[in-house]
Design a protein around this nucleic acid. Structure first.
Lengths: 197, 197
DNA sequence: CTCTGAACTTGTCAATGCCTAGATTGCGGC
DNA sequence: GCCGCAATCTAGGCATTGACAAGTTCAGAG
């Protein structure tokens, strides 16, 4: 599969090739720098070939977002409890910055795309599942939003280079664990005790 | 002032006119939909006039971001304590969505612009000042990042229509107050007691 | 009155998104 | 084995855009 390009008329794996190339561009220069014609060039096809798979620019970005939500759902599933789920959320943002960026920019996407909606729903289920285990908190829904906000905010600040200073050379995931300790409990998490001060 | 357009050769307030028009476009359709030529048309000047004030697209967005950081610093200043500072952060995002969006997309900005750096530094000072009042928390810096992450995450999710469901018809600021209660203390804030359940 | 620089205009070029029409290919039915 | 057909890709064209260069208007200093 994914024949690299046998000089044949048909590319074979154009769709995924374009998606992958788009990820590189977005991660490096943001969604604004994305050009369909440039992606076509990279894949070695004519300038209108990508349009067949994605219709237009918005279609491509929507496909990327859907792919992102699928990956996120997969990453969140099978996480034991809430804190670990948060850690995986942050990890997803770090490992898939382009996906993450596109997923949370509604203006770039076709809001009613079926694939997008389905993938987002799957991710949403996984997100909500994480809060179910919480018993010692008054309002589970509010607690869920709080947890999501904390993880999402940290991930966003991380990707926008706004916490690099405070982070030093520490691992982002490890740092995030100490943040989760401040939510709900007001203490640093038990497995981090040796670290404080 | 800001003569609307006296059919004179010089516009008089082009710079601010373009900035304001840009805010409308970005708030409605995102930074990607922004076109210098369109902004020029709206201001009733030739297509190259804006370039004189902003050099290029990046320059315009950088100016917007700087303006945003200045507004944020102003909004944060004179807030009594940390929670209120968070509320104002969220309020800023809601009232200035275009500014907020541009401020946190580094790829759109000229990172070394002096005005931008200065304005950001002023905002940063105000942000750090909020954590100073915290005494009952082990690590002030980590606590600051946690608070910032919570506020920033909630603001972002709000602007991307990701919490509209959970919010219902409640005021975003009020809702955020209940979130802050979960940080550090693990309880809902005292002035919200009647609300829970 | 002139000089100078800021503000704005006009013209141009390469690049892009998107549309339409046409070419090529592989695949299933017969 | 071959035929038709739909998916895939090519080729060309048009309107729009960002950026650049060179010229025009205007206001204020001296």
């Amino acid at each position: 599969m994914t024949r690299t390009s046998r000089s044949s008329y048909h590319h074979g794996g154009l769709r995924q090739a374009v998606l992958d190339a788009a990820l590189d561009v977005i991660a490096a220069e943001g969604p604004g720098a994305l050009s369909l014609r440039d992606l076509a060039r990279r894949a070695g096809v004519s300038h209108a070939a990508p349009a067949h798979h994605f219709k237009d620019r918005t279609g491509l970005l929507t496909a990327l977002a859907a792919e992102g939500y699928a990956l996120l759902a997969e990453a969140l599933a099978s996480a034991p409890e809430l804190r670990e789920r948060g850690v995986r959320y942050v990890r997803f943002a770090v490992e898939h910055p382009a996906h993450f960026q596109v997923m949370f920019q509604p203006e770039l996407l076709r809001a009613d795309d079926p694939d997008l909606l389905a993938a987002r729903e799957r991710a949403s289920v996984e997100l909500r599942a994480g809060v179910a285990g919480l018993a010692d908190v008054p309002d589970a829904r509010t607690a869920g939003i709080a947890a999501w906000s904390l993880a999402h905010g940290f991930a966003t600040l991380l990707l926008t280079h706004n916490v690099t200073g405070a982070l030093g050379d520490r691992d982002p995931e490890e740092y995030f664990r100490s943040l989760t300790g401040l939510l709900f409990t007001g203490q640093l998490p038990p497995d981090q005790e040796g670290k404080r001060e």
